[in-house]
Simulated scan of single mutants.
Amino acid sequence: MATGSLPSAQSSWSLSPEDKPILIAGGFILVILAIGTAYTLATQGTASFLSPVYLLQQLQVGAFLGIVAAGMMLVILLGHIDLSVPWTLAAGAMLGTAVGGPYAIPVGLGVGMAVGLVNGLGVAYLRVPSMIFTLGVNAVMRGFMVMLTGGFAPQSIATPLMSFLATGHVLGIPMPLIVWAVLSVLIVLLLQRTSLGRYIYAIGNRERAAYLSGINTRWVIIFAFVMSGGCSALAGVLLAGYSTNAYQGMGDAYLLPSIAAVVIGGTHILGGRGRYLGTVVGTILIVLLTSVLSVMQMPEAGRQIIYGSVIILMLLVYGRQRGATG
């Protein structure tokens, strides 16, 4: 009995596989903050990088990426991926601003959810690999939007409500950050407090076993893709309000970072394991890394090298630990 109780005591003090990546990402955030502070002290004589105003501004910008990553995490937890993010985001913004008025935001969100529904049906019922199907849908959406606009930038502008949600403040807190926080609470409740959340993890671990246990795996997959499309469109609507208009290619910069934020935060790329807190931490890491490189006036080539190296390094660090425990 004594030997049997020892592993239990150790496990109560040891970190879970989901906690380690979060702590590693948090450590990288501290390193990035230290580097940024040292650079601003050396060049400007002030620690402006640590000022609350600057950090709050970075969180406001990071909220757009965080919203996209929230939807992406649900899909990755299933063991799938959504590569239609760039033009789902752009289509939601462009069509929302084109409609305008009180229907702008519902139309934008509806477009994103419709794209997600198509993705879900293709993956769940046609059994096409999600990487291939969503990439094809992204190309279709790109062609569709170019056809609607004639290849030119749309002339529509964001509605006042879209601008408020993107640039407004409540009690000093940026509205995008509030929207991201509300969405985060809903995602956490979904994953931790509902049977649907348990189904998502079960399908990610082994879809066939989940199906044999009585879970309607097809509908769960469709739901996740609809959520991913809706989150992408929501980010597009907010970005349109932030920049006052929608434009082609506005979602191109969010595909790889959203995937990276999810994976860096510890969500298994093959599904079945991950915590939403890790996605939040991964998002903050990417935003701060981008900010530091921008402040240091790093050339684009250097930014890409450092950006990719950090992602690979983090995946190697906790990926090896995960493999050892698995």
Rank of each mutant, 00 (worst) to 15 (best):
W87L: 07
D82Q: 05
A104D: 06
G66H: 02
A93S: 07
T37F: 08
A38T: 04
Y103C: 12
Y103H: 13
L78G: 06
V85L: 12
G45V: 14
I67R: 02
G66D: 02
V31M: 04
A42Q: 13
T46H: 10
L33F: 12
A91E: 01
I29C: 09
G62R: 00
I29K: 11
I105E: 07
A63N: 00
A70K: 05
Y103A: 15
A47F: 13
G27M: 04
Q57T: 08
M72A: 11
V85C: 10
M73C: 09
V99I: 03
F49H: 10
V85I: 13
S84I: 00
A104Y: 07
V68E: 02
I35K: 12
T46G: 06
L74R: 12
L89D: 04
L33A: 12
T88V: 04
G27Q: 12
V68T: 01
M94C: 05
L56R: 06
A42M: 15
V68Q: 03
A70H: 05
A98M: 14
G62I: 02
L59F: 15
A34D: 04
Q58I: 14
A69W: 01
Y54G: 14
Q57M: 14
G100Y: 02
Y103N: 02
Y39D: 09
A63I: 08
V53C: 01
S51A: 09
H80R: 08
